[in-house]
Design a binder for these strands. Sequence first.
DNA 1: AAATTTTACGTAATCGGTTGCATAAACAAT
DNA 2: ATTGTTTATGCAACCGATTACGTAAAATTT
Lengths: 340, 340
Amino acid sequence: MAKKTTIYDLAKKLGVSPATVSRSLNEHPSISIKTKERVLKAAKETGYRINKFASNLSLQKSNTIGVIVPRLNSDFMSTVLSGIEKMVNEAGYNLIISQSLELEAKEKINAKTLFESGVDALLVSLANETEDYDHFTTFTERKIPLLFFDRVFDMPNCPTIIIDNQLAGLEATEHLINQGCQNILHVSGNLKRSVYNLRYKGYRRALEKHGLKGCENLVQISNFKPESVQSVIQYISTSSAPIDGLFVSNDSFAVYCIKALTKKGYRIPEDIKVIGFNNDPVSEVINPELSTIEYPGYKMGVLAGQSILGHLGGSIDIESADQIIIKHKLIIRESSQKCN
Amino acid sequence: MAKKTTIYDLAKKLGVSPATVSRSLNEHPSISIKTKERVLKAAKETGYRINKFASNLSLQKSNTIGVIVPRLNSDFMSTVLSGIEKMVNEAGYNLIISQSLELEAKEKINAKTLFESGVDALLVSLANETEDYDHFTTFTERKIPLLFFDRVFDMPNCPTIIIDNQLAGLEATEHLINQGCQNILHVSGNLKRSVYNLRYKGYRRALEKHGLKGCENLVQISNFKPESVQSVIQYISTSSAPIDGLFVSNDSFAVYCIKALTKKGYRIPEDIKVIGFNNDPVSEVINPELSTIEYPGYKMGVLAGQSILGHLGGSIDIESADQIIIKHKLIIRESSQKCN
DNA sequence: AAATTTTACGTAATCGGTTGCATAAACAAT
DNA sequence: ATTGTTTATGCAACCGATTACGTAAAATTT
């Protein structure tokens, strides 16, 4: 067990004060080059490592950024995280990642823990369940930068990073309409979450715009778990007016739907045209390939990282809450092709 | 800006010593119930939050566990992480996650940072590139529990969590042989990583066992990136003895291969039977559905979490390096079916 | 050479909890 | 009533780094 070296050990060894050692190690200007080099040399020799606990206590900062996401194991989320991690890591920050598992209670606990851990900033994508946001005021009160991405909530002075979900929903639906669909079912997530709510609004606006108000109520709320495909299929197969278009707010679930529908004898896109959301890798694997909305996760992560670093570095005024809207893109593949 | 409360503030307010406050807050036995309740009440009222920096410094532990993975955004890895996070979070630990991006240099930096951050334990899945392991000795020297999972390396006193990759490789290959394949190409990852190396060994052993030593050298090393599919296709289409079986050490890459082969006019499984590895969700989406080896990521994460918690809690002797081998399973789907 | 400025470093307080040791008060035992 | 135990709490050192403030020595100016 190697004993650990402190700046006091180094100070004693070199016959200088701990302050001098600390300054040497931190590139303080008023230290002679000679002394600095002696200290650096000794530090290397003894294998000195800074004690972050002490440093953090003294500096009141941790160089750590907290993240709360609904779950880690989704293609989209892990891609966003990958982008965040890359950015903040390059800037010398560590990432503490925790998952709410879509539970408000766990989100609250995580927020508390991260606060106590002394994170310098917090990035959040909300749980489906969350309705109360008090657990975040602790951060805003202490002026700890707080940023929401994807599943956002509008808090004062909190930047958000999203795509224009309503427009995307509108474009997706409109695309189906343009391909000839008249009776479009929308499968959405929890409407409490703005991502889903806005896509739903976009869906309705598209119907309105094209005079298809008749099918306004064709909405199924789903948790997007594989087992809930059945209720969608059930709905489609028992619908009085036959469904000819399906707009699913989630690619993997759209894929499950396609598989189940195909098994049931429906032809995609001949009988039902389908469009998903996210452009997950699976959308290119399924047959027919799935039309979808590109949702640039990595870019979102990178921007989230950059934004929060800007706030931490002071280069962005903390009071100026920026709302970053990332460009999405309609991706047309086979699953929504018009068939003559 | 809410001012923060310290135990000194509470002490002054209640007319007791900081020590008493600290003890009250930590369920110390020798504090009267009355005092304890007064302290707890005052703590709640003032919104007292412990300062982990100070606590960590004093206790020399952070309640934080570090993780280094090649990349976050892979289905397998994010699933493992999800399992780890769940376990350690329940035990009150936070997870600092960093990615090496398959680069030895970044892995070294990450290890250093995590060490300095004072993580109580480290979980690692190695980068493809890594050949030198000095950056981990810092941890073992200081008796900080170190555990490898999936991409492991055998260090003294470090538990590892893996599956029996050689057996899995053997079973996968043998399955293809049993389906009638005579000329099996194996697409592997970097052979420096034992996961790939062992699967390769299993592949060779299967060939040997079945007297197919002829195709022993049919191995392609790949980085599994989409763009490298071409070189595999190239290899197959120019091979003098026609390839009739394909064992790919990675599901998503197997999927890319199937798509590319199909486009080239090969029929799967009639012309070439394919088996992958991991049982990623995509394997059930591709047409034909992909035979594969089930690799239980979530379980691996949970076990990794449990194991490291055992070491931290002292319930497992730190000197006893356990090697946990998780059961895998051959999953037979359409892509490898014998056709009459 | 004296006065002034600059350079280089030390002193000591501080960050906020934790805890071994000491002690006063309350209680029990003789 | 005296001594011995418990119980409840305080004192003060400690964890290790940072930094405002002060100062002696060196460099510069007059």
